[in-house]
Computed example of a mutant assay.
Amino acid sequence: MGEGNDIPLVGGKSFTAVAINCAAKAGEWIKTKLGNHTSLSIKYSAQDLVTEVDKGAEKMIRNLVGTHFPHHSFLGEEGVEPGPEASTKALQSVKDAEYLWIVDPIDGTTNFVHGFPYFSVSIALAHWGEVIVGVVYDPMRDELFVAEKGKGAYVRGRRMAVSGEQTLRDSLLATGFPADPNYAQPLNMKQLQAIAPQVRNVRSLGSAALHMAYVASGRLSGFWEIGLNSWDLAAGALLVKESGGAVTDLQGNEYHLGVRHVAASNSHLHGEFLQVLQQAEAGS
């Protein structure tokens, strides 16, 4: 990632180095627990799960961050009550903090529970509401995706760039199936039905943060999902933007921490992508 003096610092400590260290330590611990979790609880819906490993990983990250930056604010998924209203309220209470760490300890808990090896640790740092550091770590592949505002994004130490597909018909997209069965899930299915015939193919692997990292690294042309939260998106959004891609809400407005319905792409096909999603939403 270049020389150490290029990394954002506060009091001589590197934000990025701390984020990387937190993600790596939590990820390695999570990996040892694959197939060994002892508790499973349902949160907002039958598709919204949590284990003691999620909670333990978040506590580990919170403690590590607090050791280095005790005065920084912290927003972690497992510290928030289930449901979109509680998530919105939790973000509102901290979004104006000078420094805010935004953490999803296991993005892809359902995969983790089933032993499906596709999940990640997502850590972002926002400064006055703008994400300046984003780290997504895939412990099963030992892949670390890192971005700093204005300084590019990297995986395995190599600079990332989005893919070059110019049209939807040449694209490989991804989506996620929402936990909300009343609004988000039916809308997502309408969008999928509209998108699928117009693209090369669609994937759904169960981790929004990794889907965003894959858009950033050129492995996917685009990604969309309904009903996400800041901890799902903050790190991945910076990865995509720093790799030359576009991240917006479904109306085409620039990403901010409050965005819940997201579209990310290589930017070349973003307009066409949004148009199909908007038509599907209008038809619903």
Rank of each mutant, 00 (worst) to 15 (best):
R62Y: 12
L40W: 00
T109L: 14
G76Y: 15
S120G: 09
L40I: 09
D96C: 13
A90Y: 03
K89F: 02
G115L: 14
A57Y: 13
S41T: 12
G76D: 15
S73C: 02
I123Q: 01
E78T: 02
G129F: 03
S45R: 06
P82Y: 04
S41V: 11
G76K: 14
A46C: 05
D48N: 08
N111C: 05
A124T: 10
V121W: 08
S120T: 10
F119N: 03
G66N: 15
E52M: 06
R62L: 11
H71G: 11
L91S: 01
G129D: 05
A126C: 03
I123R: 02
I61M: 13
A90L: 09
E85L: 09
T88Q: 15
K55T: 04
G66K: 12
S39W: 09
G76I: 13
W128P: 02
G108N: 09
E98L: 13
V80F: 02
E58Q: 12
Y118E: 08
D48L: 07
H114W: 15
D104K: 08
T88G: 13
G108S: 07
S93V: 01
A90C: 11
A97T: 06
F112R: 04
V53C: 07
F116S: 02
L75S: 09
V121F: 12
E52I: 06
L125G: 07
Q47T: 13
T88W: 09
N111Q: 08
H68M: 12
V94N: 03
S39R: 14
V113S: 05
F74S: 08
L49R: 07
T67D: 15
H127P: 02
S39M: 12
H68I: 14
K55E: 13
Y44N: 08
T51S: 04
H72I: 07
T38P: 09
V113C: 06
N63A: 13
I61R: 03
N63L: 15
V94Y: 02
S41I: 11
T67P: 00
G129A: 10
F116Q: 03
G108M: 07
D107F: 06
L100K: 00
V113Y: 05
Q92A: 05
S45L: 08
G56L: 02
K95M: 10
K89P: 00
V103A: 13
V94A: 06
V65C: 09
A90P: 09
S45I: 10
V94Q: 08
V103W: 04
V65A: 01
G76S: 14
L100E: 01
H71Q: 15
F119Y: 15
K89R: 12
N63H: 10
I102N: 00
S87R: 07
G76A: 12
D48G: 05
E77S: 07
